[in-house]
Nucleic acid binder design. Structure first.
Length: 433
DNA sequence: TCTGCCGGGTT
DNA sequence: AACCCGGCAGA
């Protein structure tokens, strides 16, 4: 893993990592439990990247996570592109997938195993096929961030760049290092609960509670959580797989800064969010296509998981069926609300909402996937949206957003950390509703 | 009372 | 345009 240990934002590190990133880098450990199991192969090249000393610096810390991409030559025997590469014989049993996690030596794979693998593979990779151009990121925000994100080589798994790549299959991150109990909590931690954020992050204070550290003490089994980072910049929705990548993206594309992390003041941190994505579904889906809720119109759809739709929900957890009625807004919003309600409990109350996309850190994998199938075609579907908006528009004031605002997050004593809008008593631009 | 932010003023 | 703030209104 040439984890591109991008130079951690040196001083920038000082900045409390509020974002997901705040969590101990280890928490983000890319290795999916099962993946690692399989991918690590005999040499047990653990994906686990010891959190670099640089502390909370996402840049550095995460960079290290760039992911241990299973680059197993042998994987080839499966005939599946890139994916499952790491599947070559692994000592470690796959904890998450009942599927033949350990492949026998090359060429020895049994038929069933192969099939299973193939299934998984297709599943996990199919989305990737949607996009083909290899574009890490365009110089400027594109209107089709998703696509962009997708536009990665299929074998992206091995992509050393670490930039993005949605290999859900391989990525079920299960932080080997303890990290806060995920889904709901993470959500709060990240966006929903200002207090926590506030508390844990002691700005510049020596004893900086490295938000990540503490939480990381629990052994977490969030097997199903995959972490991706989404750009929150307006009209951008780029999703990258690593914090460093997203930071870079933001720096370059949106902030117009140079790529050197050293120069980073950490501002990028505010423009992206971490999304936890349940992935179990995928695996489960394979082994047993009847996940938890049969009623869910979604399950069957597995096969066509298309990345875009898959990702979109992250940002905009549109409920499966209702989605069409919802405006496309991709980047901000209280989507979580909708999601929660709509899903009717699938993913019960996703994290309060938390303005920033708390992407539904769905408590249940299903919740996460549900939206996937649904094609929130609202893309242009403004038509439907009007009802509510119009009203809002009419109303003089915007309904007060619940999202954290700079004031809340940083406190009045750190006014200097507020976004300018907040400083000017304008609508917060950092924590958009 | 606190908070978010509109509306409008000043630089 | 950047900046500031009085004051309103929701919580």
């Amino acid at each position: 893993m040439e984890a591109e240990l991008s130079p951690g934002p040196g001083p920038g590190c000082e900045r409390p990592q509020l974002r997901a990133g705040g969590r101990d880098p280890s928490a983000l450990r890319a290795e999916a439990p099962w993946l690692s199991a399989q991918g690590s192969g005999p040499r047990a090249a653990p994906v686990t990247v010891p959190a670099p000393p640089q502390g909370p610096s996402m840049g550095g810390g995460f960079a290290g996570l760039e992911f241990a991409l299973p680059q197993e030559p042998q994987a080839a025997d499966l005939g599946t592109p890139g994916t499952w590469a790491g599947a070559a014989g692994l000592p470690t049993p796959s904890v998450h997938i009942p599927v033949p996690g350990q492949r026998s030596p090359p060429g020895k794979a049994r038929l069933d195993e192969v099939l299973a693998a193939a299934a998984l593979t297709s599943l996990s990779t199919s989305p990737l096929y949607l996009g083909t151009s290899a574009v890490s990121f365009s110089p400027e925000p594109d209107l089709e961030p998703w696509r962009e994100a997708l536009a990665q080589p299929t074998d992206s798994y091995s992509s050393s760049s670490g930039d993005w790549v949605w290999d859900q299959a391989s990525d079920q991150s299960s932080p080997s290092t303890p990290s806060p109990p995920l889904p709901p909590e993470a959500a709060h931690f990240l966006f929903g609960e200002p207090t926590q954020r506030k508390r844990k992050v002691s700005w510049g204070s020596p004893g900086r509670v490295d938000s990540s550290a503490a939480p990381d003490t629990h052994p977490v089994a969030q097997s199903a959580v995959q972490v991706v980072f989404q750009c929150l910049w307006k009209s951008c929705g780029k999703v990258l797989r690593t914090a460093s990548a997203i930071q870079r993206h933001i720096r370059l594309v949106h902030l117009g800064r140079r790529a050197e992390p050293e120069h980073s003041d950490g501002e990028e941190d505010f423009y992206y969010t971490e999304l936890d994505i349940g992935v179990d579904m995928l695996t489960n889906g394979l082994s047993s296509l009847a996940p938890t809720s049969p009623e869910a119109p979604v399950p069957p759809a597995f096969p066509h998981l298309d990345l875009p739709s898959l990702l979109r929900p992250l940002a905009l957890p549109l409920p499966p069926l209702l989605s069409s009625a919802v405006p496309p807004k991709t980047c901000h919003g209280d989507h979580a609300h909708h999601a929660g309600e709509a899903t009717g409990g699938s993913w019960e109350q996703v994290s309060g909402h938390s303005g920033e996309e708390r992407s539904p850190s769905c408590s249940s994998p299903q919740g996460c996937l549900a939206p996937v199938h649904v094609d929130p075609q609202p893309t242009e579907g403004q038509a439907t949206a009007p009802a509510l908006p119009s009203k809002l528009g009419a109303s003089l004031r915007k309904p007060r957003g619940d999202a954290k605002k700079c004031r809340k997050v940083y406190g009045t004593d750190h006014r200097d950390l507020w976004c300018t809008a907040c400083r000017w008593k304008k609508a917060c631009q950092r924590f958009l509703d």
